[in-house]
Amino acid sequence: MTSSVLDDIDARPGSTTSLLRTLIGLYLRPLGGTISSGGLVGLAEDLGIPAARARTAITRLKKHGLLLAASGGYALNPAALPMLERGDRRIFAVRTMRAGDEWMLVSATIPETRRDLRHQLRRRLQFLGAGAVSAGLWILPGHLETEAEELLDELGARGFATLFSTADPRPAQPLAQAVTAWWDLEALRAEHEQFLASAAGLDLSAPFAAYVRLIDSWRVLPYIDPGLPSELLPADWPGTRSVATFTRLSERLAADALAHVRATAR
């Protein structure tokens, strides 16, 4: 993967660019990696995106490296495959920690001359689901170890970081209280509630559009929510409802949505 390829962190759900990025990520691989110009614009129109606006967004996605020009249309950039595969694992295989699971600590000391790298690392670790214990010290679920290593390598920050594993972090206050300082749980709650509201408003009689919008509104959540153990979260935490809602609707809509794409994309 190259850093120029548009990642989930760079396209917030609901925008034209985001919807097309979701459409491309879902369907170009099943279609063999290519799609005609008319086919892509036609599917965008099925999402309610006017053709002119769709073409502008497609140009933007080409610039970001997600698409390449191909004869009569577009091809998926091979450099985007690792990003899309990582997204598949996060979006469709949500993992939640249990009591006793391992945590990972990332301690990074970035030189003052590399403030750009410091900013990028902080931003990307937050998107990975990490919580900030203190300046330069991050905590995240142990099952994200590989993704954390890949991120450090990708940014060229591995030489500035030390990684630790522990099953028993011991902050000065109770762990359930500490996580409210390490993560912005209220912001995460708002993201879950926004997803639930979006899901409730889907028109299920149009499976293709509903499914793409479902994935588009969901795809950021499995990144930024680390899936903390339930005993560390408020009793009314909406994350459980979000996962159940996504799973139910995805199972209902996915097959019909793919059938629509295969029948209409040329």
Rank of each mutant, 00 (worst) to 15 (best):
H192N: 12
A176L: 07
A197S: 15
P174W: 00
P141Q: 03
D153R: 15
R189F: 12
G201F: 11
G159K: 12
A197M: 11
A199E: 03
L185M: 09
D153P: 12
G159Q: 11
Q173Y: 06
L185H: 05
G142W: 02
T166S: 07
G136A: 10
P141H: 03
A148F: 00
I139F: 09
A199D: 02
G201Y: 06
D203L: 06
E154L: 10
P171T: 00
Q177H: 11
V179L: 02
L202P: 02
E150Y: 03
V179N: 02
E149K: 13
G159W: 10
Q177A: 14
A161P: 05
D168K: 04
A199P: 01
L155F: 05
V179E: 03
D203F: 12
A197G: 14
V179A: 02
A157C: 06
D153N: 14
P171K: 08
Q173W: 05
P174Y: 00
G201S: 14
E145W: 13
A190D: 08
D203S: 09
Q173S: 14
E145H: 15
I139Q: 12
A197N: 14
R170V: 15
L155M: 02
G142N: 03
L175H: 00
E149R: 11
H192T: 00
S198V: 11
T162P: 10
T146G: 13
E186H: 09
E145I: 13
E147L: 03
R170H: 13
G136S: 10
P207S: 04
A148M: 03
L185R: 01
L163P: 03
E191C: 13
L202T: 04
W138G: 01
L144P: 07
L137A: 04
A197P: 08
H143M: 07
A197C: 12
L140K: 14
V179D: 00
R170N: 13
G136M: 13
G136E: 11
P141N: 06
L163K: 01
Q173G: 12
E149M: 15
F195L: 03
L151S: 05
T180E: 06
W138V: 01
P171V: 00
L151D: 09
P169F: 01
P174F: 00
A190K: 04
A157Q: 05
P174A: 02
L155Y: 04
A176I: 08
W138S: 04
A200K: 07
A167V: 02
G156R: 03
A190R: 04
A157S: 05
E149F: 15
A161Y: 06
A161K: 07
L196K: 00
E191H: 12
G201R: 10
D168R: 05
P169N: 01
Q173L: 08
L185G: 13
E150L: 11
L185I: 08
A190H: 03
W183H: 08
R158A: 15
V179S: 01
A206D: 10
Q194Y: 08
A176R: 12
D184P: 01
A172N: 13
P207F: 08
G156I: 03
L155G: 02
A167R: 00
A167L: 01
L196Q: 02
E145M: 14
P207H: 06
I139P: 09
E154G: 06
S198C: 07
R158W: 09
E145A: 14
A199V: 09
Q173K: 07
E193S: 13
P174S: 02
E193G: 11
D184H: 04
P207Y: 04
W182G: 02
F195A: 04
S198I: 10
S198E: 15
E186L: 15
D153T: 15
